[in-house]
Simulated assay, not measured.
Amino acid sequence: MMIYGTALLALCHLMGVVLGDLLGKALGVKANVGGVGIAMLLLISVRLALHKRGWFSAKSEAGIHYWGALYIPVVVAMAMQQNVVAALRGGPMALLAAVLTVLVCGSFVALINRTESKIVEPQETEEVA
């Protein structure tokens, strides 16, 4: 059902917000640090794990694809809510949090790419005239 994909997206979003807030508190920044990125990484990881085990139907994935199309506007709206001026006043700690978030997210993307099965392209045959 599509509702399962939507529920998974909502759960990952809530977990990302909570983890982003905890990361912000741990770094001394009064802001959500990377919550949306964490949510997306969780969603990708969980979706791949469920798909690999065969526990996720095509209709459930349709729910994720539907909300995925709407995710960019949601991210923009969430970013507008954050207090950028307060984060910049955090000084080096805010910069450190940003750099670490980019590095961790990049590492997860690399890990996900390495664990995915490689797609084998069919070889082109040359026609002899």
Results as ranks from 00 to 15, higher is better:
L70Q: 09
R114A: 04
C105I: 13
S45P: 08
V74K: 03
L48S: 00
I72H: 10
M2W: 03
V33M: 10
V75D: 00
N113V: 01
I112D: 13
P73F: 08
K52Y: 10
V109H: 14
A129C: 03
V99P: 04
F56N: 03
L11H: 01
E127P: 05
Q82V: 06
A26G: 07
A98V: 09
A10C: 07
V85T: 11
A86C: 05
I72D: 11
G5R: 13
P73E: 09
Y4S: 13
L42H: 02
A49P: 02
I64P: 07
V76A: 05
V17P: 11
G35S: 01
L27C: 03
V120T: 07
L9W: 04
A129I: 05
S107D: 15
T115P: 02
T6A: 07
P122K: 05
G90N: 06
L88Y: 14
P122D: 12
W67S: 02
S117Q: 04
M78I: 06
G90W: 04
V17M: 15
G5N: 13
A39M: 05
G20E: 15
M80R: 10
A79F: 00
S57P: 12
I44H: 08
D21I: 01
G24T: 08
L111P: 03
L100R: 00
K25H: 15
L11T: 06
G28L: 01
E121T: 06
H51S: 15
V85H: 11
Y4R: 14
Q82K: 11
G68S: 05
S60Q: 14
V120A: 02
S57W: 04
H13W: 14
G28F: 01
V104G: 14
S45M: 12
V104I: 15
L42K: 03
K59D: 15
L9T: 10
K118I: 08
A62G: 09
V74Y: 14
P73H: 10
L41I: 11
K30D: 12
L95C: 03
K52D: 13
L23I: 01
G28W: 04
C12V: 00
C105G: 09
I38W: 14
G91Y: 03
V99G: 03
L88H: 12
I38K: 07
A110E: 08
G20Y: 12
Y71S: 01
S117M: 00
A86K: 08
S57L: 02
G5I: 07
A94I: 01
